[in-house]
């Protein structure tokens, strides 16, 4: 089995993230305590989700330009991976919120933004399932993907900055980077972000290949049926 260089890099970085993230020393902060290690898992999920959803939108735009079903397959695979990352981000975030803020869910613009993002992509999946014709499905879901993503961006980046929030990085609360993300943590955090993003691309590629294989099998199946009927 031969792996592309970036897949090897992904494995190395993630192994390093898990081992280094759990064993290397972290700053001792009140309330956060050891849960600060979640930074290596929770934050990269959101980075990964946004990067992969952006990829999905790019492929949707390319689909509208070229009408190649492969591009659509890729956009869907990326959207699915994005949903997976979003759910994992929510799970890690909720566990973290439980132990630091004392509740599973707090009324916070960033959390609500994440929930809405999930709703949008679930609606995208439902929309796809409701359309029968393959070409129409690809085209219309690509349109919705572009439309929804562009309205999601102001939601995630502008709205939280206008309101107060418990979440680091907005509403007067500085981001982690300004004072608590010290140099030791950066040593694990940046590799973790890259590692998780690469994993997302990898998952997307695998699911895209499964789709391509199914498509080819269907085509072969129909040609066989035609040959047999003769």
């Amino acid at each position: 089995m031969k792996l592309a260089w970036w897949k090897i890099l992904c494995i190395v970085l993630l192994v390093y993230t898990v081992i280094g993230g759990l064993l290397l020393s972290v700053p001792r902060l009140p309330i956060l305590n050891e849960s600060i290690r979640n930074l290596y898992f929770h934050v990269p999920m959101w980075f990964g989700m946004l990067a992969i959803m952006f990829m999905s939108v790019v492929y949707s735009i390319r689909y509208l330009q070229k009408s190649d079903p492969k591009l659509d397959d890729f956009a869907v695979s990326a959207a699915h991976t994005g949903i997976l990352f979003g759910l994992l981000g929510l799970a890690t975030g909720m566990a973290w919120a439980r132990y630091t803020w004392g509740d599973w869910w707090v009324n916070d613009p960033k959390l609500n933004g994440a929930a809405i993002g999930m709703l949008i992509y679930s609606a995208y999946v439902v929309l796809r399932n409701s359309l029968e014709d393959e070409q129409q499905r690809a085209r219309i879901s690509a349109i919705y993907n572009i439309f929804a993503f562009s309205t999601l961006v102001p939601l995630l980046f502008i709205l939280p900055r206008l309101t107060d929030s418990l979440h680091p990085g907005n509403g007067g609360n500085p981001g982690f980077s300004s004072y608590d993300l010290d140099n030791k943590m950066r040593l694990v955090f940046y590799p973790a972000v890259i590692g998780w993003m690469l994993l997302g691309v990898w998952i997307t590629q695998v699911s895209y290949r499964v789709k391509a294989w199914q498509r080819r099998r269907e085509e072969v199946g129909t040609t066989k049926a035609v040959v047999h009927s003769r």
Binding site: N112, I116, G117, L119, I120, S122, A123, V126, L127, S130, Y144, F147, A148, T151, P154, L155, L159
Partner: peptide
């Protein structure tokens, strides 16, 4: 479908 497609998109506007 109309409702599920539009609600998430419209929420930021509604909050504002």
């Amino acid at each position: 479908l109309m409702a599920i497609l539009s609600f998430p998109v419209i929420i930021p506007m509604l909050l504002m």
